[in-house]
């Protein structure tokens, strides 16, 4: 029993105590940090030839607003996503696996520039993983 208690203690240290657990949105730094990540990401895209072609005809302000909402939603923040589904957004773009991963590399760079710690970056990436199949080769 003592062993079990010790294990629980270690586990709670590793995962964060359940009763006082912050949402990932809070861990990220809330609205301001998410806005900063999105701004940085747009900046990264603007300077990347491959990525920019996907956005050539996009309404950047709408993209900015909806991505803020979407990230907030993925991070269990207090937001409602009002944009289209991931399939609708990416339909017809035929985004390849390597271009998707390029996008992930740029997103990681955007988080790093917003001073998001490595471990929090990974938690957000983990939330984004399931959306990949709704994004590539459509």
């Amino acid at each position: 029993m003592k062993k079990f208690a010790t294990l629980c203690f270690i586990f709670s240290l590793l995962t964060g105590c359940a009763s006082t657990q912050m949402s990932l949105y809070d861990e990220l730094g809330g609205k301001d940090t998410v806005a900063q990540i999105v701004d940085n990401f747009i900046h990264e895209i603007e300077y990347n030839k491959t990525m920019f072609t996907y956005f050539a005809e996009s309404d950047i302000e709408r993209f900015r607003e909806k991505l803020n909402e979407h990230l907030c939603l993925l991070a269990n923040g207090p937001c409602t996503y009002t944009g289209d589904t991931m399939e609708q957004v990416h339909a017809g773009m035929n985004i390849s696996e390597s271009d998707f991963n390029l996008g992930v590399d740029l997103f990681i760079a955007a988080m790093t520039k917003a001073n998001v710690p490595h471990t929090v970056q990974n938690k957000l990436l983990a939330k984004m993983v399931p959306t990949r199949k709704e994004i590539i080769y459509l």
Binding site: L13, L14, T15, P117, H118, T119, V120, N122, K123, L125, A126, V129
Partner: peptide
Amino acid sequence: HLGAIAGY
């Protein structure tokens, strides 16, 4: 596993 062990 992304972020699986204390975020690592």
